[in-house]
Amino acid sequence: CFEPRQPRLKKCAGDIPRLANETIFTMNEVEALYELFKKLSSSIIDDGMIHKEELQLALFQTPSGENLFVDRIFDLFDEKKNDVIEFDEFVHALSVFHPNAPMEDKIDFAFRLYDLRQTGFIEREEVKQMVIAILMESDMTLSDDLLEAIIDKTFADADADKDGRINSEEWKDFVLRNPNLLKNMTLPYLKDLTTLFPSFVFNTKVED
């Protein structure tokens, strides 16, 4: 199955239809995703689970260093909150990034991503923290006045009830007016999984 510490075991045929049923992927696409998962989950520790360092390595080509956004992505993928990403969690989360996934799901995922403290609101301090993180990541500097001006403008646009925080309804209205904010919530690669990972056919257990 896709159980931790048994990465080389053959997948349970029953897991594939279950995951296909729970997500937007076909059964063969789930198998193709397993090829990607095997690669990512064995890049540092070959134990059939993706550790944060492995995600960091895949995204930044270096396993070291801290990145606020990697932390958030990791937390959202890690449904069971056991500090690793298991295969079913990987498939569930990537399903949201499929070009055909419902827009509502992408909006909700992005909201949870930016709601750093998970209070149900995106707060001004959280936005400031994320802007500072992106500036550090890209070696850019901005004066504090400019930083505050950017955040003021964003809240003037997004925070309709002016309570200093963005709730999920305000977020939805805001991203529908600014759809480019959801660009990174769609991965065109997910439409071509069986072409990208053709080796799934050597291990296939199902026929779509």
Binding site: L36, L40, A58, L59, F60, N67, L68, F69, V70, R72, I73, L94, F97, L113, Y114, V127, M130, V131, A133, I134, E137, S138, L142, L146, A149, I150, I151, K153, T154, D157, N178, N180, L181, K183, N184, L187, P188, Y189, L196
Partner: peptide
């Protein structure tokens, strides 16, 4: 383009940490 006209989330969404397409690239 003045940075003040930028939206904070536009800036944030450019993070490499949020660019999951790199999972599919070598």
């Amino acid at each position: 383009v003045s940075p003040v006209t930028m939206n904070a989330f536009e800036l944030i969404s450019t993070s490499q940490g949020l660019n999951l397409s790199s999972l599919f690239e070598k």
